[in-house]
Write a protein that binds this DNA or RNA. Structure first.
Length: 337
RNA sequence: GGCCCGAUCGCCAAGUGGUAAGGCAACGGUUUGCAAAACCGUCACCGCCGGUUCAAAUCCGGCUCGGGCCU
């Protein structure tokens, strides 16, 4: 199985993240111009072609100004994943570096950010047949019994997973099934020692962020989102499970199918989006080395640059953390865990 | 003015004497190849006052508010 890129592959990159609707894309664009950088989308949904309005994808004009990577790289019926993304991200960085430019990761998919900072361990790629088998098994024997199966082969992983968390229980069983090795053995901890990438979180007071989200959802719906989804539905192939779970799309599907009214749909999407923003903040709060910059600051670009400089010069590089990083290197392959 | 019905967490809503289901929202959290997903946790003494009772959200009386009807 191919080895996932190590955090070292991203050594010279900068990271700008923040909850949906925080305004990161606009700031990033200006920063990329200033710094001679290129943008790498750290986003699980702008990967898909044709999903533009609902994912708030950068416009063609914006992409003409600054090169963007990992946007529109999959058909909406194809499936992305963290590992796939991380791999492509490493390639994009090498490419950008080759042109003497700085890669700037911009996006709000926290799981991708975590993989970027910590790397992924070597794991078998998803085998659709094996996954389908375990999902069928879950439906057949029930959540509790499925969890018991995991207890039998990988008690350590089972201990960390709630029986109702079928998705992860399935993955753990799947990994054991495919490799004969418990997931928990492969899954050496990534809790400490993140790659020292300068990472800035654009932050708004909660109420303000929620207002922005509510307004943006309305703007999207009024700006052709319904028509966009109509086009997606008219495609020769159905959307992949990954693409169709993009925020708001399920609600628009239901509305187009004659379900909830426009107003109900708008409200539902606003709610879902706010809930997502809340979860993003939970991830961001746990980021050990990120700098939070209030998005309402005047001279925001300058503030972000200062924060990047400060973060890269700070705690991450203290000797204490170096020790932690050193102790977290896998002796077998030299990879930071 | 009179009569009837209703009043349970932000919203919806069970519960007719034995010490407040559930859903949604909200809030906190988990997160190693679906992650804009999935999952976990927290969250009320029942409109107000008085009475009956060992015990009342549940029964009785009054009041307030909402809805309906009548003169």
């Amino acid at each position: 199985m191919p080895m996932p890129p190590t955090p070292a592959a991203f050594a010279d990159a900068l990271v700008l993240t923040g909850a949906t609707g925080s305004g990161k894309s606009a700031v990033a664009l200006e920063l990329a111009v200033e710094l001679g950088g290129e943008i790498v989308a750290m986003d699980s949904m702008t990967l898909y072609r044709g999903m533009d309005i609902g994912t708030a994808k950068p416009t063609a004009a914006e992409r003409d100004r600054v090169p963007h990577h990992l946007i529109d790289v999959l058909e909406p019926w194809e499936s992305g994943s963290v590992a796939w993304w991380l791999d492509r991200a490493a390639a994009a960085c090498a490419d950008i570096r080759g042109r003497g430019k700085t890669p700037i990761f911009v996006g709000g998919t926290p799981f991708y950010l975590k993989a970027l900072l910590h790397g992924l361990f070597e794991a078998p790629p998803v085998d659709p047949a094996i996954r389908a088998k375990w999902e069928a098994e879950a439906a057949r024997i029930g959540k509790a019994a499925l969890h018991e199966r995991l207890v039998a082969v990988d008690p350590k992983a089972a201990l960390k997973l709630h029986p109702n968390d079928v998705r992860r229980v399935v993955r753990a069983l799947e990994v054991f099934d495919a490799t004969g090795v418990p997931l928990s053995t492969l899954q050496t901890s990534w809790a400490e020692a993140p790659a020292p990438l300068p990472c800035v979180v654009l932050d708004w007071p909660r109420e303000e962020l929620y207002r922005r989200i509510d307004a943006r959802v309305l703007a999207m719906l009024g700006g052709g989102w319904l028509e966009e989804v109509g086009r997606l539905l008219a495609l020769p192939r159905p959307l992949s499970g990954e693409a169709r779970q993009a925020l708001g799309y399920p609600e628009v599907f239901a509305h187009l199918a004659g379900g909830p009214s426009w107003a109900e749909t708008a409200t539902a999407i606003q709610t879902r989006t706010r809930q997502f923003a809340k979860r993003q903040r939970t991830w961001f709060r746990a980021l050990p080395t990120a700098a939070w910059v209030p998005a309402s600051e005047p001279r925001l670009q300058a503030r972000v640059r200062e924060a990047w400089a400060k973060v890269s010069a700070s705690e991450v590089h203290t000797s204490k953390n170096h020790e932690e990083i050193a102790s977290a290197v896998n002796p077998r392959n030299g990879r930071v865990l």
